[in-house]
Design a protein around this nucleic acid. Structure first.
Lengths: 229, 229
DNA sequence: TCAAAAGTGTTGCATATACACCCATGA
DNA sequence: TCATGGGTGTATATGCAACACTTTTGA
């Protein structure tokens, strides 16, 4: 292994920061933590950590997510790298941002307490350290783009969900109302819904059927090559 | 400046690698170099360089692009970060990939010689070092997505171009033929074409009018929020 | 006069949008 | 019985895809 041409170069701290999205049935939220170390200790922040010698950046992001939520096998995607010189006033740190979609009811409350983590509706997020506000906004934007092409919204729901819940989720993501009939029509055309023979009780008089997500017969037409003409 | 909580962490070499696209009138090409240092010296590679202490990653990418082409103010966009542990066998290096669109007739030939750079049609690219093939493919994919939503293809053309040339470009990007009439119709609807009172002579009997790109009245309807329903 | 590329419109089809009524149930 | 939310279909408009002939001019 020849490092001769490398070893004179400047090395940089590389962090991963996770934008963790959840949906409580009404609002789209992000999980933020109170930073436990200097600088900016005690301020609100995305969950992050430094990339270690023996792990890839994807692994690092998964580790960080696991540290906070106790969850594995979560939908996660790289957003992009943020590498401005002065983004962290305490030193040169490049951050690689990831966003994750989790079922909000499904994570470890104990870990949440330890990290002083809290779910914030996106419209009411507190002031964040460094450029984390920028990362959060960019993640939200990317989520919208992504959800328009791929059926990934389901990652934010429990395994069984109703159509009204599903619609609320999409309305929360896009911050706009959709027509019920058109929404369902489009959703069904994707071919990813399994209707169950069971109704949700309590939330309404009539009760809404449960569905589950099934990407076995996902209609890839929708995913297929975005072309110009 | 308190570095106390940072200084024990592992620091990593961060490189930027540029996927430089050009269009010669027929084919979409990428500018590749013969690597001038170990490891893998003499093999084909993307143009890259290490991020320095005093520069952001965007700046680094622009510097690297300038080193090879002599060009500034070029369209460039971050692709994503590649951070697998073993992507570079000679050491831990994280690469942040950028792609650039340049007017192929417009760069410094002298620098090209010094770097032993060569334009390769994407379908005939040589074996590349490390994971550079992956970066190149991903850049091509991203270019297609991007071109479908934003009028950035013009960055690959000279200031004056004809409609047939423009169509050839899009056909090269998507590797499929388009219908002339539909293509022009769509292109005009973007509102970014200025017809000039001058014809290109020589390439055909009839001659084709020159156009120039003008995003003053770009119809942002096309860019506007991709929503689900 | 002919060959080769440039330029231009219309029609059918598919998809998206807009919209209103009935159903089931618990209180 | 009524108030609340759940469920469904149709008619219109819009955008997309398919398609063929005329024009210009250099050889």
């Amino acid at each position: 292994m020849d490092l001769s041409s490398y070893h004179n170069h400047y090395r940089i701290l590389v962090a991963v920061d996770c934008i963790i999205f959840g949906f409580d049935g009404t609002q789209l939220k992000a999980l933020l933590i109170k930073r436990g170390f200097e600088p900016e200790k005690g301020k609100w922040s995305l969950m992050g950590g430094f990339v270690r010698e023996d792990e890839g950046t994807d692994e690092a992001a998964n580790r960080v997510l696991h540290q906070l939520t106790g969850m594995k096998g979560i939908y996660m995607e790289q957003l992009c790298a943020f590498g401005d010189v002065d983004r962290d006033p305490a030193g040169r740190v490049i951050s690689i941002a990831y966003f994750a979609l989790i079922n909000i009811t499904d994570y470890n409350k104990q870990l949440q307490l330890e990290h002083e983590a809290k779910w914030f509706p996106l419209s009411e997020s507190p002031e964040l350290i460094f450029d984390h506000q920028k990362l959060l906004l960019k993640a939200q934007e990317r989520l919208r783009e992504k959800v328009a092409c791929d059926p990934i919204g389901f990652e934010l729901l429990p395994p069984k969900f109703t159509l009204p819940r599903l619609q609320s989720l999409y309305e929360a993501i896009y911050e706009m109302p959709f027509d019920r009939r058109n929404f369902i029509k489009k959703m069904r055309s994707l071919g990813v819904l399994n209707k169950l023979n069971e109704k949700e009780r309590g939330s309404s008089r009539k009760g809404a059927y449960y569905y589950e997500f099934n990407n076995q017969h996902y209609n890839h037409v929708y995913k297929s090559i975005k072309k110009f003409v």
